[in-house]
């Protein structure tokens, strides 16, 4: 095992939530054209009708997910594409790209991941009737942010 992986500073994981929140805020402000606001997780739970996910492998190993309701996913797509975002495929594509950019922006902000953490292409699930099981059963971070008043949950699950 490359000991450099440890310099991804697992001892600093408790400080990663603000970095994750910042990564989300930047992606929404720059690419979606809308500011999102960090919310209390206990007070805002999204209806998870759309789930986008991107896998991480290497120095960071796990999965990042972005969950929101269908209306919010549609609004995100419209913000990115204009009124041409009219199909479920485009909505899924837009949310997948948001997830991909959050994952990339997050890892780029961490010292020590340079070139040693790869991202998968995004996958998007529509519909909320599923159970999520990740083999990455280590650290779990969750940020809930409000997009036009609607909650979006961003979760990062990492293997130890």
């Amino acid at each position: 095992m490359n000991t450099d992986a440890s310099l991804v500073t697992r001892s600093h994981e408790e400080n990663w939530l603000p970095i994750l929140e910042l990564a989300v805020e930047e992606v929404f402000e720059i690419m979606v054209g809308c500011r999102v606001k960090v919310a209390e997780q206990s007070e805002h739970k999204p209806n998870e009708e759309f789930t986008a996910m991107v896998g991480l492998a290497g120095a960071l190993c796990g999965i990042l997910t972005v969950c929101c309701d269908a209306k919010t996913a549609g609004e995100v797509a419209k913000r990115m594409l204009g009124d041409t975002a009219d199909s479920q495929q485009q909505v899924a594509d837009a949310l997948g790209e948001v997830c991909n950019m959050i994952a990339g922006n997050f890892k780029n902000k961490l010292a020590g991941t340079d070139g040693r953490c790869m991202l998968s292409v995004p996958t998007v699930i529509s519909g909320g009737e599923y159970s999520f099981h990740s083999l990455a059963e280590g650290t779990s971070l969750e940020a809930v942010l409000l997009f036009e008043g609607a909650p979006i949950a961003v979760r990062l699950q990492l293997e130890h």
Binding site: G104, G115, R116
Partner: peptide, 9 residues
């Protein structure tokens, strides 16, 4: 144009 922003990439 990519999310892979590392110096290595």
């Amino acid at each position: 144009i990519t999310t892979e922003g590392s110096e290595t990439h």
